[in-house]
Amino acid sequence: MTARNVSVFYGAKQALDQVSIDVNQDKVTALIGPSGCGKSTFLRTLNRMNDTIPSARVEGEIALDGEDIYAPAMDVVQLRARVGMVFQKPNPFPKSIYENVAYGPRIHGLASSKAEMDQVVEQSLRRAGLWEEVKDRLSDTGTALSGGQQQRLCIARAIAVDPEVILMDEPCSALDPIATAKIEELIAEIKGRYAIVIVTHNMQQAARVSQRTAFFHLGSLVEYGETSDIFTNPREVRTKDYITGRYG
């Protein structure tokens, strides 16, 4: 995905100013910065989640495989299948574990038989590192799982429609350290298969899971580059001050 000069307004208030980023297919991109700096706003522009806010206006261009995602002809339902989203709080549907994963492939017509759907569900749960824990209780409700399992279920649900990009908005902030470690392991395992963009307030997590990092401050993209460079040799004073804990 490529974003060029993306600005976002909520009514008269400008939340993002002229942000340009390339999201690489085989890398994890972390968005870091203090609260209210525009990270989540930018993440939401990548699959048009801001469309749900009446006062939101997006300027600039965002392209997926060279296609303008804000073009009038773009099918937003299709776009959100290609660009999946995992939210801060796990939000499984109030359905069975099986139905949580099968829902997307069913509405997009990705499985033509029960056997094919079973395969999609199993493969998605395996990729999300959850199959062994839930394979004997697929008919149980997804909301009965632990927080960390629910989040992996939401990742399995995103994976099930075979997206190109997965967006994660602080996916571990509601989880304990053990569940967080499992999500981080999962991100490392699936990173070659999908382009992943993760918003995190945890700089150690950004350093662990990502290969590229973008630092946002007051609605602007301050610096974007290799994660190792951003954390050890930032070019901008504001980046250095944030990473060393001067503010944030």
Score class of each variant (00 low, 15 high):
68 D>G: 01
247 Y>R: 08
180 T>L: 03
85 M>I: 14
190 I>Q: 00
162 D>M: 00
157 R>V: 06
52 T>Q: 15
14 Q>S: 11
146 S>M: 14
100 N>W: 04
148 G>E: 13
210 S>K: 05
19 V>A: 10
34 P>N: 10
109 G>F: 08
120 V>P: 01
244 T>P: 00
104 G>Y: 05
163 P>K: 03
54 P>L: 08
33 G>Q: 03
10 Y>W: 13
171 P>G: 04
201 H>I: 06
10 Y>N: 13
189 E>W: 01
158 A>C: 00
107 I>P: 07
188 A>L: 11
134 V>N: 03
243 I>M: 05
140 D>K: 02
12 A>N: 15
108 H>R: 04
188 A>M: 13
86 V>L: 04
229 D>P: 05
143 T>S: 14
181 A>R: 12
211 Q>P: 11
197 V>H: 07
189 E>F: 01
7 S>K: 14
109 G>S: 06
221 L>Y: 04
30 A>Y: 07
73 A>P: 02
102 A>Y: 04
125 L>P: 00
30 A>P: 06
213 T>M: 13
1 M>D: 15
123 Q>Y: 00
163 P>T: 04
63 A>C: 12
44 R>K: 15
183 I>G: 09
26 D>A: 08
199 V>P: 11
20 S>N: 01
82 R>S: 08
248 G>S: 08
24 N>I: 06
91 N>V: 07
93 F>I: 10
206 A>N: 09
127 R>I: 00
117 M>S: 10
134 V>F: 02
145 L>T: 11
248 G>C: 07
210 S>E: 04
74 M>P: 08
107 I>Y: 07
211 Q>L: 12
149 Q>N: 12
108 H>C: 05
102 A>W: 03
84 G>F: 06
160 A>F: 01
13 K>M: 06
182 K>T: 05
147 G>T: 09
97 I>P: 03
197 V>Q: 08
